[in-house]
Design a protein around this nucleic acid. Sequence first.
DNA 1: TCGCGATATTTTGTATGCAAAATGCCCAAA
DNA 2: TTTGGGCATTTTGCATACAAAATATCGCGA
Lengths: 269, 269
Amino acid sequence: MSDLTSIVKAPQDDAPAHEPAPCAQTRQGAVTAALRQMILGGEITAGSRIGEAEMARRLGVSRTPVRLALTALEREGLLTALPRRGFRVRRFRLKDILDAFDVRGTLEGMLCRLLAEDIPDTARLDELEQAIADGEKIIARMPPGIGQARQWFASNDRFHHLLLDAAANRPLAEALHANNRLPLVVVGAVTCNLDQPELAAELMAAANKEHRNILDAVSRGQAGRAEALMREHVYQSRESLRRLLGDPARCRRHPGLPGWQLISPENES
Amino acid sequence: MSDLTSIVKAPQDDAPAHEPAPCAQTRQGAVTAALRQMILGGEITAGSRIGEAEMARRLGVSRTPVRLALTALEREGLLTALPRRGFRVRRFRLKDILDAFDVRGTLEGMLCRLLAEDIPDTARLDELEQAIADGEKIIARMPPGIGQARQWFASNDRFHHLLLDAAANRPLAEALHANNRLPLVVVGAVTCNLDQPELAAELMAAANKEHRNILDAVSRGQAGRAEALMREHVYQSRESLRRLLGDPARCRRHPGLPGWQLISPENES
DNA sequence: TCGCGATATTTTGTATGCAAAATGCCCAAA
DNA sequence: TTTGGGCATTTTGCATACAAAATATCGCGA
């Protein structure tokens, strides 16, 4: 990770990224991605100050793309800007993450309410049904390895994104995306309980069942039910994550849980 | 507006800015503020491409701060990034703005629900009461001139911000701030109906009454009522704005309504 | 006249130099 | 020993130079 030239030439494709992939056609994108990974992976200690010159040296590029990347990550919420002294890796309290789940639940609940009040056309409903079916098929091949978990997570992600697309509500989509940028809000605990495969399978099956109920409510125009179900669905993820983060020892066993090291026990932000 | 040196030396203070003032201790901040004002004021035609070199010449600074400012405004939602061709001034459909009001209503509704479920201490409730009382005092000095309207808007703003502070929910606060950055979402139609003073007075009085009801619900722990009242409160603003934008001729009479020129009738975004 | 390709121009991306601001350090004085 | 001021160092902010990419322009040929 000391020289970025290689990264520029061969952008990482391990992040399918529903968004139009802001990464790595340019050095700036590569630096941003590299820094993000270093922060989420704990390679840079949370709370430490980060200088552009130091990072430029460390990555083998000039200060210009580093500066751009740092401001980008600040807007992403991973860094906080010090007045005139560069940036610092942001530390989150557990409460912040849980609160972000509440925001997500509220917004996705709103999303389902809107959809139920203006039922999507059959094609979209079929796509949603398909995403659910895919998830079930993956679950049927349990117990899950890390690969299965990733596949299921992809189908889960597809379901949520299909809902969002169906609403065609740009401010809502942007609010959700911004909120979900916080670490751990999307890559919840569900996919990372692999040390307890039966629990993981249970969680995934339950989530899939909830998806089916949500889709049912939406397709019947049951706005209140759809909203409540989605809120509860997200709340279950929230509680699942809370249990996982409850004992940090389990986190340490999951390198696939990026960002958990940014959570400070109960101190200041 | 052709040379920014003066702006840097003497930062504008016409924007009290609850936030820690992201402006103008540095050139970058000054450029950002200037560009934002130019865009919102219609000085730069909506939909037009914006090059950093051109802007740098126009503002009399180098490309470096301009580039930073452009990316900042992109994150703010006023610009959209073209792949490798700089930026373009974003055009909003009326639907986007109305949708943003829906998001705001949902989030502020959530905020009130949370507050009612964990009632703030007396000091905070008193501050809220004070903000409402201030608003009423201003309304009593009707009919409103532009100055009165600004004063009332300040008290209105203070009320909403006090609620947000009381919740101490950072993700919620950030989601709201990001959403409200869209033009016209905060500076709603209420304060800009000055061509019909009696209507403006009516709207302000109604809004203040709603504030009082909301605070009552919150302080009594009536979560559902508080949430519903706040949603409706925002919905009234939304409809008010919709009526105002219904005939663009009225907008043109209100130079205090920044950003209305970014709304494209019913075309593509 | 139209299409196509080569060249010229514009524009972004990156690196680096310089100045100002802030921090940290050291020494002197109380 | 502690405190305060001045100096050195670090670090950011800005400008500019250069290279690469994309676009626009022009001319040539069919």
